[in-house]
Design a protein around this nucleic acid. Sequence first.
DNA 1: TAAAATAAAGACAAAAAACTCTTTTAATTG
DNA 2: CAATTAAAAGAGTTTTTTGTCTTTATTTTA
Lengths: 145, 145
Amino acid sequence: MGLFSKTCEYAIRAVFFISQKTSEGGRVSIKDIAVGIDSPEHFLAKILQDLSKRGLVQSAKGPNGGFFVNENTLRRPVAEIVEVVDGNGIFVGCALGLKECSEKNPCPLHNQFTTIRDEIHSLLRTTNIGDFNEELILGINSLKR
Amino acid sequence: MGLFSKTCEYAIRAVFFISQKTSEGGRVSIKDIAVGIDSPEHFLAKILQDLSKRGLVQSAKGPNGGFFVNENTLRRPVAEIVEVVDGNGIFVGCALGLKECSEKNPCPLHNQFTTIRDEIHSLLRTTNIGDFNEELILGINSLKR
DNA sequence: TAAAATAAAGACAAAAAACTCTTTTAATTG
DNA sequence: CAATTAAAAGAGTTTTTTGTCTTTATTTTA
């Protein structure tokens, strides 16, 4: 099990990819994104439809269409992608799956995992979608393998 | 998505429960464990069979049979339960699902999540199965809701 | 030794997640 | 305005995870 669902992994990689391509000055098709991040094309299409509805990415149909992001998206935290796709369970849920786990009624691992989850949340809230464009352009970071 | 699979959540809760009951001096049946941790009885039975094969819990058939743990198990880290059930993916995998993500070929979130994963690993390696028996007996910790 | 208690095992079933394929809609361009 | 391009939408399929039900094997005890 990963930290995120497969859908969410594709979503983050796709948004980073689109963000990079936008910063390089172009739109990019689903097919090119799928190749660029090594994901199933039609599955990815569904994910991008959702992200598009939520305004996290922009799209245009027809020739020279494709996906791109606006300036606002570049400054949004990565946490927003995670919330749209996987919800906030990774930030707030109980590690042992208890519905009513809390400070008052804690599972044995409550305190330890509250700390961990807070760190994950804080990391994803302070990291913005556009933060990796340079590294991606320079090839320092990978989205593919 | 939780951090662990449902199977793993049940496994950890069950082992904690058995550990507590053992420390109180008795064996405990699958049915009682299922009630005690609020899990599906027969699904839990499968999980306990696996844990039993791996030596993490002990079992005995027949009247006055049931599950219990030995002294050794009480000193084993919680990480062992996770490794048996979910593997070590949560400790070592790439947050974005890349197969070849590494220091040499990092995904954009590689460094941040290496830190997070190390913390999770270290937390689960330094926390032992028997560490919560007292809190559980006193009712300070919950395994049920 | 028969009955009862209990875990082990196996075969299904349901639900969720991951993935594929086809058709429709919208935009562009010659 | 016809042809082309590309996203949107919809209807599946496959795989994995989660959960149920029934039968079998083992142990104890009366």
